[in-house]
Amino acid sequence: MKTDHTSEVTLRINGTEEKVLVDHRVTLLDLLRDRLGLTGTKKGCDHGQCGACTVLLNGRRANSCLKLAVAAEGATVVTIEGVADLTEGDGLHPLQEAFVANDAMQCGYCTPGQICSALGALAEADAGWPSHVTPDVTAGVKSASELGAEEIRERMSGNLCRCGAYHGIVAAITQVASGSNR
């Protein structure tokens, strides 16, 4: 049994390999914000209840506040700073554009987590995954393009917005889900 309280970890974050010595208590969230300066990912509750810390971890959405950095060794992480690079061109990601166009925020604190979570949710729907409100779990859903507001609200329930910008958030995600510009 090892007794060290620190370890070196290597992660690929937004396309860049990062090698860092971490105290085992450091979460992926704190590594991103405090060690790597990627402060786009936000700390809300720090207990996996608010979704502000959501990132894409090996392609799936996850709460970075509950992931120990040391346990993320070898992982590929996309944070809000890397979302625009998921699409071609120099501009924002279509989902970021849709959040602006639909006024999907007030203070903006939850927005990075909302956007990373929505990207994960759309990919899950494209894979046919049902949700709690899908009428028939056996049939699932065909793709994200058929998600209505009720489905989007359920699939996004792990992301809280205390300003209550939910109306705009659902509109922004619906717009991107129904389009082909993802």
Binding site: G51, N63, G120, E124, P130, S131, H132, T138, G158, N159
Partner: peptide
Amino acid sequence: TDFPVLSESILAGASGQLRNS
């Protein structure tokens, strides 16, 4: 298809992020 009770129980708990981890 064969055990909808199991899918439904999991989907009724936690959030999308938590279920992925």
